[in-house]
Each structure stands twice: as structure tokens, then as C-alpha cells.
């Protein structure tokens, strides 16, 4: 990873120096242990702060629609698919981005580390990754866990560790080795429930929602200037965080991002009240694949799934 990081800093500096981009978007160390924060800069001296480590959680493509000019952006496999999807939706122009790809090994889910160690993240001294093991140091002890136990669920099922689209690749491409069972653990649980049980489950989960809209704002597929939830005429859903409204908000959001969601997992990770949002978004991802044989963000030249129709459309409701 250190080598990749050095190469990244060199490439980013060159892009800025040669005027090929106006901005670099990458990750720099965060202010808390085991965190990173998005670095958005025009200054070539800042590139020394760029890092690559198992905590580069954010899908930085969410910033692309905000910035004017050409942007060099650091992406993991899932993030690159979000960019492809944005290109398909005419939200990003391919020539305006220089995509710096990381062949991604997956990211560490600190909530899982907390669960297996029984410690809070700020009480851990070190988390080190070697091969298929992760060593966590705390209270003067070392404990070793298989990576599978501490990676994010979506990383375990990753179909696209190497960016789908890139201009610079910071390492050798990585073959995909999705572990569907491990990545679908939460969905399995829901699949096993009766519809009444599922209803009660979601009622309970959505009762905690505070409508911070972090799930929407971290999502590159949620690029609307004005979200339906903010409309007052007509009022599709009240901004009041009652569980029913919260559920409807999330269901509509999922329909809106169907065919755009790349299972980057940001919605679930951003949720401050631990609502398992990926259990909805991943299910939608699967449905899109089943019904339309479509995976989001795989081909920038493919027509977008939901905004495209043909005159010979089989269903006549759209004509």
C-alpha cells in the first residue's frame, strides 16, 4: 500500500503541475484513529497528504457534481462504477475526469472490529493487515482475525475490486472473488422472515431514523438538485421522522437509485443510528439484475436503465 501511496502522490502532483486537472480529490488522514477524510485541493503541495489504507471509506465521486473544472479523482472499484453511472446520466463528462484507480482489497468495518474485540475504536492501538489476516493490538495484547470477519459486507461480495474505468491504475488489477454468502448475511436473515416479521423489523429500524439525510447526501446516485422529500406541493412524504414516512422515504430513494446503485455501501455506513440500509439497496441491486440483467456502472456507453425507452417498448404505459 505504501508503494501505491507514493505513486499516487507522484501522479497527482504531475496532473496538477501539468495543468491536466484543476482539482485532485483523494483521501488524507482523518482526525480520529483509523479514519480518513476527503482531501479536495488545487494545491500541488497538498498531494503529500494523500493516503491509501483500509479506511478510505468515502465514495468520492459524490463531489464530482459540485466541482467546476477538470478533476483527478482517487477511486476504488465501486466508486469507479458510480462515476461510470454519472457519465451515463450525463452528470459527469468523461474527458473532465482523470480517474486514478486503486485495485481494492476491501475496507475494514470498524463496527465489526469493535464487535470482535469488545473494544471501542478509539481504544485500539493498531490494526494491521497481512494477507488474509488482520491483527488488532489493544491493551498490550494482539489478536488475529480472518479478514472476512472484519471487512464491510459489501466488500466481501465485491464484483469489481479493480476500477471499471480508469486513466491511471496504481497497481496490478485484482480478480474479483465475491463471497456472496458472507456479503448477504443480513439479507439472508430478512429472506428467512415472514412478511409480517419483516414489516415489524423495518418498523423498528425506521423508528430510529432522524432524517439527517446522510444516506442520501453521501450517495453519488442521489444527484437531484432538489429531492422529492423536500417538495411541499405536492408533499410526497412529510419531513417529520415518523417511522412510516421514514420507510417511504427510503423506499422511494431506493427506487430512484435503482440501476445507479453500485453497492458501495456508503448509505449504511453513514447512517448514525445503524439502520441496515444496505439490506434494501443490495436487494434492489439484485432485483435490477434479475429483472433487467443490468449492473450499474459497468459500461459508460450503455444507455441508463431507468431513463431510457424505445418506441417498440413492450409495455404500452409509457407511450
Amino acid at each position: 500500500m505504501k508503494e501505491m501511496e507514493q505513486r499516487l502522490q507522484k501522479e497527482a502532483r504531475a496532473l496538477l503541475e501539468q495543468g491536466k486537472v484543476d482539482y485532485i480529490i483523494g483521501f488524507e488522514p482523518g482526525s480520529l484513529k483509523f479514519t480518513t477524510t476527503p482531501l479536495i485541493t488545487k494545491d500541488k503541495e497538498d498531494v503529500e497528504r494523500l493516503v491509501i489504507n483500509p479506511f478510505i471509506v468515502n465514495n468520492l465521486s459524490v463531489f464530482l457534481t459540485e466541482l467546476q473544472g477538470r478533476v483527478g479523482i482517487v477511486v476504488k472499484g465501486c466508486d469507479s462504477r458510480s462515476i461510470v453511472s454519472l457519465i451515463q446520466d450525463n452528470k459527469v463528462v468523461r474527458e473532465d475526469v482523470v480517474i486514478i484507480g486503486i485495485p481494492c482489497t476491501g475496507l475494514i468495518d470498524l463496527s465489526k472490529v469493535e464487535l470482535v474485540t469488545g473494544k471501542d475504536r478509539d481504544e485500539l492501538d493498531d490494526i494491521a493487515w497481512q494477507g488474509d489476516k488482520i491483527t488488532v493490538r489493544f491493551d498490550g495484547e494482539e489478536k488475529v482475525f480472518p479478514t472476512e470477519e472484519v471487512l464491510f459486507d459489501n466488500c466481501l461480495g465485491c464484483e469489481c475490486p479493480t476500477p471499471q474505468e480508469y486513466d491511471i491504475l496504481l497497481g496490478e488489477p485484482r480478480p474479483a472473488a465475491p463471497n456472496l454468502t458472507a456479503s448477504r448475511k443480513n439479507l439472508e436473515k430478512l429472506d428467512g422472515m415472514s412478511s409480517e416479521e419483516r414489516w415489524d423489523f423495518w418498523k423498528n429500524e425506521f423508528s430510529r431514523c432522524i432524517r439527517c439525510y446522510a444516506c442520501r447526501n453521501v450517495c453519488p446516485a442521489c444527484f437531484c438538485k432538489r429531492c422529492f422529500v423536500e417538495e411541499s406541493e405536492p408533499q410526497w412524504v412529510l419531513p417529520v421522522p415518523r417511522w412510516q414516512d421514514n420507510l417511504i422515504f427510503q423506499v422511494i430513494r431506493n427506487i430512484h437509485v435503482a440501476g445507479r446503485c453500485t453497492d458501495c455501501g456508503e448509505c449504511e455506513r453513514a447512517c448514525p443510528v445503524n439502520i441496515p440500509l444496505r439490506s434494501l439497496s443490495k436487494r434492489m441491486y439484485e432485483l435490477v439484475d434479475e429483472l433487467f440483467q443490468f449492473k450499474a456502472g459497468m459500461d459508460k456507453d450503455a444507455v441508463p436503465l431507468m431513463t431510457h425507452y424505445e418506441l417498440e417498448e413492450a409495455e404500452d404505459f409509457i407511450r
Binding site: 477524510t37 459524490v62 432524517r211 446522510a214 453521501v218
Partner: peptide, 24 residues
């Protein structure tokens, strides 16, 4: 520049008190 304009920091802030009013 890196803020995503969500409401986490304010809604979870113990001293933030802004509220909205809506009729149903």
C-alpha cells in the same frame, strides 16, 4: 469543501435546537 451537507452534526448536537413545523 468536504462537507456533504447532511444533518448529522446538527441534529445530534445537544445544543442545536432548530425545528421545522409541518401540517398533515
Amino acid at each position: 469543501d468536504n462537507c456533504i451537507s447532511c444533518g448529522i452534526c446538527t441534529l445530534l448536537c445537544p445544543t442545536c435546537f432548530c425545528f421545522d413545523i409541518n401540517d398533515e
